[in-house]
Design a protein around this nucleic acid. Structure first.
Lengths: 265, 265
DNA sequence: CAACAACAGGCATGATTGTGCACCTTCACG
DNA sequence: CGTGAAGGTGCACAATCATGCCTGTTGTTG
């Protein structure tokens, strides 16, 4: 196997940065690494490997698990998988976010697992809801007090909704009062971003159409960046975050002037 | 079988998170898992498997049952489909109907509970699938070998799909090879009909766009009429019926010249 | 109802982890 | 050239985690 050949190559590595690069390469190739195996391959103690993995995890490159680490590439995990992660925390975020709604409003629910929880948490009041997400539309099926508009087009199996020119054109005919924007990353300097170019293009048009943008983000997305920019922080009308967000991130967000809404514990 | 090959693959699993991922994959593929079988396949005790399943159940990924666990489908939501007890019969109809498909075809799946079973029974071959039904789109979500086109518009909570001018206009740009038409009633004299005027209007346009119309109907719909006509019997390219259809209805259908396809018992 | 399988919880054990500490190398500075 | 600061590395230790076994309980089947 090619991976075997690559694993057995003499490391001849003395610099920690070389080790980091090697670990990142392995993570990208195989999706996961084992601490003990890395220690043997690289000829250092497991302590050093653990330190390396901790540092890589701190920068969001991987996620620390018992015995090693798994790659944190955002494309890892389809929508179905992601929709099972952190459900309780997302539901708490959603319960707070829906308080921003007023009866009679026209609200857009962008694709995303947090927004799926928001769809489930929508209160029983007259609302017009538009969405390009199939799971969200399915969750709203039967909630007959809502006028539901489905944005048609080609379904993207990664994001769980329609993307491309057809949905983009359809959104240009709408003027939602409120938009819950789905996102992969939020950073004060870099703003909101996603991992797919097509997704970002759609969201950019969406942001331009909506009266107010609301962003509900879990802790792990705060302070991270994604390859494709969607919006700047000044475009965000309200940022809903968890109660136990890291203090220094919370402080810098408050300092940046974004209107915050902190979810109940 | 491919599932066999996947089951027998050497686990080479050292991390507990890998085990979780494997179980989730099996759940998604097969809908259910057995604790004893997992323990043997993964080379750990059943206690550990039970702990894993408990954790996965706690996060909502699966539901714990005696002997294993079954997959939860939170993204497809709580459908009212469970109220339809004819799922098994519809699934048999569907298994026969999908044999009409050829690789590479463009197929339209109209809204309807029988067509939902057809969506689930679609074989693994390259297909372009268009639908105005949200439950069907949700069922196809994740089947990444299909190019799925969702027909957008206002969602009708009674039929579970989009209806009105927007979907009708969207369908006029399509020329599907095959269309599985949803229906409320079929009669040799009166043809195909539905109970909603808007629904019938959409289906009439759809019928005009498609190269071949396939109708899969359960016994209780045969020989009944609905207020709004959709198509005549001569528009039907193939009629899929159950094996135990009433003999006199079957005879008159055969006499009428409609190409019949009788489902397996 | 009886036999049996599956289950949850408690417990002991070994593996993994984080942290503090000592040692080493490197490098800038006097 | 000597020296001290800074960072990387390995080791020891305590805490945590994962696992298998045990026990009593619950659910299933005949």
């Amino acid at each position: 196997m090619s991976t075997e050949a690559r694993k057995e190559r003499p490391p001849a590595i003395a610099l920690p940065s070389d080790r980091h690069q090697y670990i990142r390469q392995r993570l990208q190739q195989e999706g996961r690494v084992l601490a003990a195996e890395l220690a043997q391959t690289l000829g250092v103690s497991e302590d050093s490997i653990r330190r390396d993995l901790r540092e890589l995890a701190a920068t969001g490159i991987c996620q620390r698990v018992y015995g090693g680490a798994i790659a944190m590439t955002p494309n890892t995990g389809s929508f179905i998988e992601r929709s099972h992660e952190n459900v309780a925390r997302k539901a708490r975020l959603a319960a707070t976010a829906v308080r921003l709604l007023q009866p009679g409003q026209f609200v857009f629910l962008d694709a995303g697992t947090t927004n799926l929880e928001i769809a489930r948490a929508l209160p029983d009041m007259p609302l017009t809801v538009a969405t390009n997400s199939i799971p969200i539309a399915a969750a709203l099926f039967g909630r007959s007090q809502f006028e539901v508009l489905v944005i048609g087009g080609r379904m993207d199996h990664r994001v769980g909704g329609t993307l491309g020119s057809i949905p983009t054109l359809a959104v240009q005919d709408m003027r939602p009062d409120l938009c819950f924007l789905g996102t992969c990353s939020v950073d004060i300097e870099l703003g909101v971003g996603t991992t797919l170019a097509e997704e970002a293009a759609f969201k950019r048009v969406l942001v331009g159409q909506c009266n107010q943008i609301v962003l509900a983000v879990t802790n792990e997305k705060l302070g991270t960046a994604s390859p494709f920019a969607v919006a700047g922080m000044r475009d965000i009308g309200r940022l809903v975050i968890e109660a136990d967000a890291e203090p220094h991130k919370l402080a810098s967000l408050q300092h940046s002037g974004v209107p915050l809404l902190i979810a109940d514990q």
